[in-house]
Nucleic acid binder design. Sequence first.
DNA 1: GTCTATACGCCGATAGAC
DNA 2: GTCTATCGGCGTATAGAC
Lengths: 194, 194
Amino acid sequence: MTETANQEEPREIILKISLKLFTQKSYFKTSIADIARETSISSGSIYHVFKNKEAIAQALYDDLMERMDDSLAEIRRTHKTVADRTRAVVDLLFTLTEDAPEVMRFLLLSNYREFLPTEKSLSSSPAFEGFKEILSDGIKNGDIRRMNPATAYASFYGTILESIRMSLEGLLEKPISAYNHELWDSAWRAVVRR
Amino acid sequence: MTETANQEEPREIILKISLKLFTQKSYFKTSIADIARETSISSGSIYHVFKNKEAIAQALYDDLMERMDDSLAEIRRTHKTVADRTRAVVDLLFTLTEDAPEVMRFLLLSNYREFLPTEKSLSSSPAFEGFKEILSDGIKNGDIRRMNPATAYASFYGTILESIRMSLEGLLEKPISAYNHELWDSAWRAVVRR
DNA sequence: GTCTATACGCCGATAGAC
DNA sequence: GTCTATCGGCGTATAGAC
């Protein structure tokens, strides 16, 4: 660490502001000049840190996904049953929705594949493949009824992700965590064995 | 009708090609020059029909939503129970996904609110409000268990819309209609009374 | 109502001084 | 590693002939 503590690095400032702007006005309507103005970092310096505009979005995506992967690993370590693990995943996603809504906006509403054309769709990302696998494990061990894994995923996470979208759009009266139990229960009913 | 029959009007040609391009490469990466080339209509003529690029997207959206509204009205007329109506809605959406995937891409994957900032989110559109209402009716008459209507919507249509997204992304082995029964059944389990 | 030609602003990216 | 200045190109939209 060559920096004095408490000083936020330019890279982090740029990423933070870019996430805000990309989710507020969309990637394509955000110019480097916008980012320069809001960060008080000149466009020249921005290009010193990132090769181009797309590289900013890519770094954002990589950072978010790494956090998601870490959280998934933590969940696998601290929870063992399918019910507990899915509950923890829902907790994680709802907590993110409340504490870092821009992150969920970026993942669910920004259509990031338009500007990161090499990235996979959200449901094919490593983290979400992990979420799928939790359900597949449940089919194997009988906690979840015999069904097509894709149907199980669409049912369980479709419910959860749609409710997050609604929350981000301001369509829920209360913070989404208030519906945590009810939504998990509803999603679980769709897949639970009897 | 001042046209000889069988001649497709410029407006319709422009809309058809624009829908294709907007969903293939996204609205922001599609230029008027692209549309001019693919339609063999000059950019000058395109601007004669539409005030600007956004007006093309708006016309597309309005046309799609009008079709959706009509289909919803038809469903209400020809089906009476909540189960039958939701089955018909799922049929409608899956048929659209197979026969006019660009339409579903536009509605579900294009994030149209980025370029049509005055439009509501899909789940707040008149057609989808109607889909919601079908579920609310079910809560009233007892076919659906007592639950928050937003939760019912997220559960039922979250399942259906997520599966459509997966189908559009090529993540399902078979055409989505092959999963019609299984998906309706799974979505229904989440909300049905007992 | 169709075309060609072009104006003009915006924005990503670079050059180069400090 | 930060800045200012600027280039080059693209893309929307318009002008105006036919």
